[in-house]
Design a protein around this nucleic acid. Structure first.
Lengths: 206, 206, 206, 206
DNA sequence: GGATAACCGAGACGGTACGTCTAGTCTTAAG
DNA sequence: CTTAAGACTAGACGTACCGTCTCGGTTATCC
């Protein structure tokens, strides 16, 4: 059996209690004082933990927050008692998409999610490695649900068969994302409904 | 006319040489070491300027960079010898949009623009006030060009009259923006061409 | 005129108020919690000063304390209204020496001097460079007074002319120093009187 | 007889191998990097021992070193094949003392002894309790040898009978000690010879 | 054209946080 | 129960920047 490299922390001895306390403190601080004023020292002291315990397990503030947020999302999903989760399929694609987007609008204004996810998104813009992890672990799994729903629609002929669903979904998801990220416009149910209509039927007359 | 409040700097005495040196230093540093490692002290020392000269004229690092970038963009536009700028109208809407988006793809990979604009975008995600200024001064004027082109297309019946152009443009602009900001997918001419096609003709069969 | 080296602090701008506050804090802390528990952070915070202000002007805790103590000694000497100071010469060498040593015994038990001078002595034992400065700036000037007095005694025939006064003084000064430094024995007037007698007349019968 | 309190380590189970490794590591580190940079962690890791094993048996770094040094001195004495040890008595007191002091001069410049004994002396200056133990266990036994030799000299009339030998020895031992501890002067055979002469015959003319 | 503001470069100041290191305690697994 | 290993809380280390301040030394208007 291989020995541990001397410089690699021994995960088996890791304190679960500290890990949880750090997640909680990080999320709370980001919500309360914002990401830039959230400091490692602040997290440590709020969590009742030595700074070294943070530096031992995470390379940066952003990584702490990413893990904390993943954990939070995981919990939230569990709490909702959901299996892998899918977008409902009532047969009416437009209605189904509008519903999901309306739910997303609600979620984007939930302050518990807003502060950390904005912080992570911002960090990801400037830190490619973290950005890609953010996308792979949080965003892409959600986008995949749209892929699935669009593929189902293709099978029933509601979406043209030559369409690439991974690109198609961006027609309504990305506009919402950009308005949220960059404050380029208001975010309302009406707006997302419109996006779905435009995307499904196109801008050109028929 | 009222006298200057003692705490309000007298713009007329401002050193143009220092202002330029600060812009140059800020842009160079962001490109070289990244936004988070760009410090006011670093900018001052690189520009051969006292720190106070920066604090006198700008409230924050982000503001320095925003102004420096606006200045840079202004110069670039001037250098291109352009009047206010418009999207060409050859009568073929799809082709025109594809061309502009292809140009945007090129610009997004220009390293001189990438570092500072990513930095500003990231800061804007987390700092609403700056974000709105970034959008109002840089992004929105460019989006307006699409609004104009789409309105022209509506007049010639190439776009349905009930379409809101400000929303419509997001169908192809936002996906590109999101891929660039969040690394959610590759950015190619083929991709942007596809976006235009999907947006104009919709996902649903006709 | 030569310019400042860029890395050398500009003494002319130094804050006298901070310097004094640092001296006071350092001496107070050494007296209250002992040298090892006296920290740079503690001194800074007690003095109401940034840590960097200490690091800017002194290379180590020991140097701060040495300067603070020199300052204190300087003040004390001034307060005593003394000219350069000499050992009185009443013509009775033994009596003069006993008097000075008795005064030294008193001083050694003065708590205001004891804590910092012990700390500096200890540091000097293990840090030769500091030790030599401690000796050159504090100890040797005092020993020189004995040299002068002994030389005067040689001129009046009270001390043999072949004696080296710098060594001779150690016969009574060093034993006292050692008892104080190393707790090798009690320190009393009787003890120092005895040292003078032994040193002047020798151990061997005449 | 009562059982061991749970908090009192059971000496009988103590690992001899660890004890020795700790002594060796402590002495080596003090010699190599100096006392202040010698840390408990460093000793433990160098000795291949858990930190707790050190904390279980010694209350502080200084205590480890004191014991290690006592052990080393014990070994050295044994290696020299000496019984309790005495100062030789050739009948010529001055010569005998000069010889012993010359040997001490040699020992003081032995680097194997110098680093730890300086460290302990320094610690003892500032930590009375340890200082007293250092003196009682290491210094006083050696000084006692001078007491014995001086008493023998008193019996043969070479030293005045009213002299207190414990004080008398300080006339030549303490000056050497002070020069060594505080770098107040060079340490040579000539110097120690001079000390003996001055001490025996006094400074005053006869 | 001399006075007098406000600028300017420079950099010291009181602070906060960084990331590292060590102290001394506690936990785990092996013997 | 001791041991090696090492994670834990705590807090000092010395550094880097923050944003404010003061210092002389130019400008650049205004009387």
């Amino acid at each position: 059996m291989a020995k541990n490299q001397s410089s690699v922390p021994d995960t088996s001895r890791r304190s679960e209690r500290s890990r949880r306390a750090i997640y909680d403190a990080a999320l709370a601080l980001v919500a309360e004082v914002g990401y830039p004023k959230t400091t490692i020292e602040g997290i440590a002291s709020r969590a009742g933990v030595g700074k070294q315990t943070i530096y031992r397990w995470w390379p940066s503030k952003a990584d702490v927050l990413l893990e904390a947020f993943l954990d939070l999302s995981g919990q939230a999903a569990e709490a909702a008692g959901q299996e892998p989760y899918t977008i409902p399929d009532t047969g009416d694609l437009a209605a189904d998409l509008k519903n999901v987007l309306r739910a997303t609008v609600d979620e984007l204004s939930n302050p518990a999610f807003e502060a950390p996810s904005r912080a992570l998104a911002a960090e990801g813009v400037v830190n490619e490695e973290l950005g890609r992890r953010f996308v792979a672990q949080l965003l892409e799994p959600q986008l995949q649900l749209y892929v699935d729903r669009l593929r189902a629609a293709q099978e029933t002929g509601k979406v043209r068969p030559d369409i690439d669903p991974r690109i198609a979904l961006e027609l309504f998801v990305s506009p919402l994302a950009q308005r949220w990220l960059q404050y380029t416009g208001p975010i309302t149910y009406e707006y997302t409904d419109t996006l779905v209509d435009y995307a499904l039927h196109g801008l050109a007359p028929r």
